[in-house]
C-alpha cells in the first residue's frame, strides 16, 4: 500500500464523497453554472449594446418580450446560484469558527435568495404586463 495516500475510511471511499457531506455535488454545480453563466452573459452584454437606449421605456419594452424575459430569468438563476456556491467556499476557507461559519453561510443564503427574488419578480411583473411606463 505504499502508493495509497487515501486517508478516508472505507465507507467514505466507497461513497465517493471525500470528507463527507456534498462536496462533489457543490463542485459539479459550480462548473455547470459557470458554463451557463458564460453563454447567458455573452447574450446579456450583446443585448446591452443592442438596446436602443437606457430610458426606462426602452428597458420595459425590452424585458416585455418573452425572448428576453426567459433568458433574463435563466441569467438570474445561473449567476445567483454560481454566486452562492462561490461565496460559500470563501466563507469555508476563511471563517474557522464553526458557529460563525454556519451563521455566515445562513446570512449568505438569505442575501442571495432575497436579492435573486427581487430580480426575478421584477422581470416577471414586467413580462406579465404588470408595469405601466
Amino acid at each position: 500500500m505504499a502508493t495509497d495516500f487515501n486517508s478516508a475510511s472505507g465507507l467514505k471511499r466507497v461513497r465517493g464523497l471525500g470528507s463527507a457531506k456534498s462536496g462533489v455535488h457543490h463542485w459539479w454545480l459550480q462548473r455547470v453554472t459557470a458554463a451557463s453563466n458564460l453563454i447567458l452573459l455573452v447574450w446579456f452584454l450583446a443585448s446591452l449594446i443592442l438596446l436602443p437606449s437606457f430610458d426606462r421605456s426602452s428597458v420595459l419594452a425590452w424585458i416585455s418580450s418573452p425572448l428576453v424575459a426567459v433568458p433574463l430569468l435563466l441569467l438570474i438563476v445561473s449567476t445567483f446560484w454560481h454566486a452562492r456556491l462561490g461565496v460559500q467556499v470563501l466563507i469555508e476557507d476563511y471563517v474557522h469558527s464553526e458557529g460563525l461559519k454556519l451563521l455566515a453561510i445562513i446570512v449568505l443564503n438569505f442575501f442571495i435568495f432575497g436579492i435573486a427574488a427581487v430580480a426575478a419578480f421584477s422581470v416577471l411583473i414586467i413580462a406579465f404586463g404588470g408595469v405601466r411606463a
Binding site: 424585458i63 445567483f80 461565496v87 436579492i115 435573486a116 427581487v118 430580480a119 419578480f121 421584477s122
Partner: peptide, 22 residues
Amino acid sequence: TGNGLVFAGLTLFAWWLAATAT
C-alpha cells in the same frame, strides 16, 4: 473578482431590474 461581482455586480443588476419595475 468573483466575490466583487457578487456583492457589487449582482446587487446593482437587481437594483436596475427593481427600479425598472417600480
